[in-house]
């Protein structure tokens, strides 16, 4: 579906010609038990801004995210990160709906991440303090991470991802089980990451969140990209019938 890619040429980041495609999926197919869950997906993500991945359950959003993180390999098709087929894992960070925190203190969780991401030992203490402050976690630094509230745990997971200074930040419904206040805190961290130059790709079921954060919307259905549209246009007048149906609250089959 190459026209999908050309269709989003109205986006300023592409028109300017400055930002090269950071990540390209070409005819990607991912099957499980003989069923194509991602079915010939074509998508080019620009290097900047926040792209929100929307679509009904089972559309292949989470799988697309995992393909982009290099956690699973496509059965067919190609994925390129800045033109090469190897995932630059140290600059790609992933946050899950249910935060996976190590059985350690908040501080030790972040130190572990800094070490894993190859931050020099001498720079670690300062980066650690920055991250704690960014996540409003300084008070909680020495608490065991897994006794914190859901919102606090997700803040730890977010700043841990930011410890990578990621070029690509992949977020799989990070606020799906959070209350509005905790959601606002996570969204603020997402904005900080995007402002810092990270490409953000966010999966969400919340159209409001899409409107608040997205520069562009990618709408998926049945493992394919249905449309790629600038955010304001998407919510005013989505082009595809599937997206119109989804936004109007009807069920998609």
């Amino acid at each position: 579906m190459p026209e999908t890619i050309t269709r989003n040429s109205h986006l300023s980041v592409i028109e300017s010609g400055i930002a090269p495609p950071a990540i390209t999926l070409q005819d990607v197919v991912f099957e499980r038990q003989g069923k194509a869950l991602v079915d010939g997906l074509n998508l080019t993500l620009t290097a900047n801004g926040t792209t929100v991945l929307m679509g009904p359950n089972g559309a292949g959003k989470s799988l697309t995210l995992r393909l982009m993180a290099g956690l699973i390999a496509p059965g067919q098709g190609k994925i390129r990160w800045n033109g090469v087929e190897t995932v630059p894992s140290q600059r790609v960070a992933l946050v899950f709906q249910k935060p996976v925190l190590l059985r350690r203190s908040v501080r030790a969780n972040l130190t572990h991440a800094l070490k894993t991401y190859g931050v020099p030992r001498s720079a670690q203490p300062q980066r650690l303090e920055e991250l704690l402050k960014m996540g409003n976690l300084t008070e909680l630094a020495d608490r065991p991470a897994r006794v914190l509230s859901g919102g606090e745990q997700q803040r730890v997971a977010m700043v841990r991802a930011l410890a990578a200074r990621p070029k690509l930040l992949l977020l799989d419904e990070p606020t799906a089980s959070l209350d509005p206040q905790a959601t606002a805190a996570i969204e603020s961290l997402i904005r900080t990451a995007a402002a810092g130059g990270a490409k953000v790709l966010l999966v969400t079921h919340d159209p409001g969140q899409g409107q608040r954060l997205a520069d562009e919307i990618v709408f998926l259905n049945h493992g394919r990209v249905t449309e790629v549209t600038g955010a304001s246009q998407f919510f005013d007048a989505p082009r595809s019938r599937e997206a119109r149906t989804y936004l109007s609250g009807h069920l998609l089959f």
């Binding site: 290099g70 894992s89 960070a93 992933l94 899950f96 996976v100 991440a113 894993t116 991401y117």
Partner: peptide, 12 residues
């Protein structure tokens, strides 16, 4: 089982 995706996504 619990840590696998996280650790791999971090390039551990």
């Amino acid at each position: 089982g619990e840590y696998d995706e996280l650790l791999r996504s971090m390039g551990t």
